[in-house]
Design a protein around this nucleic acid. Sequence first.
DNA 1: GATGAATGAGCCTTCATTCAT
DNA 2: GATGAATGAAGGCTCATTCAT
Lengths: 168, 168, 168, 168
Amino acid sequence: MGAASSSVSKIAREAGVSPATIYVYYKNKVDLLVSTYIQIKQNFSPALLKDFNDQLPIRDIFKHVWFNMFEHITNNLEYFKFVEQFSNSPYSSLVNKEAVEQYFDPLSKVLQTGIEQKIIKNVHPDILKAFMYYPIAVLANPSLCQDFELNAENIETAFTLAWDAIKR
Amino acid sequence: MGAASSSVSKIAREAGVSPATIYVYYKNKVDLLVSTYIQIKQNFSPALLKDFNDQLPIRDIFKHVWFNMFEHITNNLEYFKFVEQFSNSPYSSLVNKEAVEQYFDPLSKVLQTGIEQKIIKNVHPDILKAFMYYPIAVLANPSLCQDFELNAENIETAFTLAWDAIKR
Amino acid sequence: MGAASSSVSKIAREAGVSPATIYVYYKNKVDLLVSTYIQIKQNFSPALLKDFNDQLPIRDIFKHVWFNMFEHITNNLEYFKFVEQFSNSPYSSLVNKEAVEQYFDPLSKVLQTGIEQKIIKNVHPDILKAFMYYPIAVLANPSLCQDFELNAENIETAFTLAWDAIKR
Amino acid sequence: MGAASSSVSKIAREAGVSPATIYVYYKNKVDLLVSTYIQIKQNFSPALLKDFNDQLPIRDIFKHVWFNMFEHITNNLEYFKFVEQFSNSPYSSLVNKEAVEQYFDPLSKVLQTGIEQKIIKNVHPDILKAFMYYPIAVLANPSLCQDFELNAENIETAFTLAWDAIKR
DNA sequence: GATGAATGAGCCTTCATTCAT
DNA sequence: GATGAATGAAGGCTCATTCAT
């Protein structure tokens, strides 16, 4: 069920190598999936943080990241779908979550600062993230939102809701 | 990848029947999965709409549904995970989405009313749903939010953000 | 290395069934090998004990069994080779040896009686068996003894040595 | 099935070289196995013939060799097991048996002499060997004789049977 | 001479599915 | 309607072997 549950053979074919070659680089299929997930997550980080400027007003920082994220997801939909599926699979428990989270440290710090400056609601970070990032995952996912057009206006509107959610 | 990618044999064993019996009721495995998805979605509807009262203030209606949803997901985590995985799988395109959406018509109507009464932001319904429902899916999913405690206080806090997002 | 290390596919082909069918009857390859070993051992027993008569003089009893064994091995060389290989493999430790030994109880009893009647040397049973049965395994195995002809005279001669070994 | 059916990779790893290096010295895996078998057999010979003295009485010569063999097998169980498995495998037919036998020529000569001096039974050499050497293989093999203790007394007792078998 | 990288072939096993009963 | 038995196809993985370096 799902693209990420692709077989090793298919993954190898797409990579243009023999299935056996996969096992030269990865211990087994789980290792391949976990490594790929971590790799993709690592690549997400710089994309989100492109032109990151923590001197801007907090709202602008988030808006900037929000647009980066939309762009990156849109341009890397296959990777993004893989991440979604992986996150919902039992394998996700094999990943050292803290290590992955740290790629997004700068964002956590902005959140922290926003809370301290009483700009952002002082609630559990997971709640903030659920409103700041997850709606993007839905809206940018064509199989979930077929008739939502991903133009700048709509994305900006959506950001308004995200900001209203987290701001004090 | 994932609990829902169970084999027909295992599904049959859990149901206490022979694998062959499955094929008396379903054309093939895809049919089984799709039917199960629709079935679960149908069962979601009355749970969400339990004690639904469209005479209440709009905010209270949503708050009530929001709590219903948390409770139902928490008590039916396996079904919920299946739905998440299915939604992210290629099979989801085989489902007549409008038919499924209609189970949730009463909620759409409340949204509509809220917009007309200028209580809720006049934006694409998909945007509203992305903030009204999806954050629950994240927060109620233990594998995504391990250290977020699902007590009434936290859920209420989260609702505040949801409401702030969609309200005018 | 060896005929018994045949693949499941080959075993299935010889049995005229699909490899998948093997797994309807056996849990896995090890189960197949162990079950086959026990089966063959069970079939050995009645062959050795054919026309067994514990009223005869002890030497005659052994001579009779000795000839039975030669005949059975010669006529079931493939099974015998499998047993030899299996015994020398790590799988052999998975077999309940006592359960298998019990098929040959009547012979153990004859040995015991012989010892009590001071006809047979009073030594560890394993030593007796090493001279009473193992030489047959060598002599009847064409790949070990190519130029030893398995005629009645040679077998009888060999028995003389076996008997001289164990008799007092 | 069996320790000797190790993979080329594992054999290389144990030898501390790359699998490819194996193919510098051996044409293929069969060549490796056959060469190893012959090598081990060659090493067996001097161990058996240690302190060989053909001036001793024939019984003493055999007793001496018998003890040498027990000691060598006990100290080189892995090699011995390999030989057992190899002998029972189809590869054994690829070995020039006479060439291997010749390493044990001195023993054959003693047998010959014993026969001529009417000390040893005048029977086919294979029969003599089946009683002179094979019982050791059984008794020294822990997986075949778990509860037979390999102390000097037991070994001496076993030798008595071997000698009674072959002596006139 | 030695090896890292690569792979076709094959292995054990599971799966979705069929069909006679 | 229900199922036991059977299987072709495919999956994950290992292996013996090659070859460029």
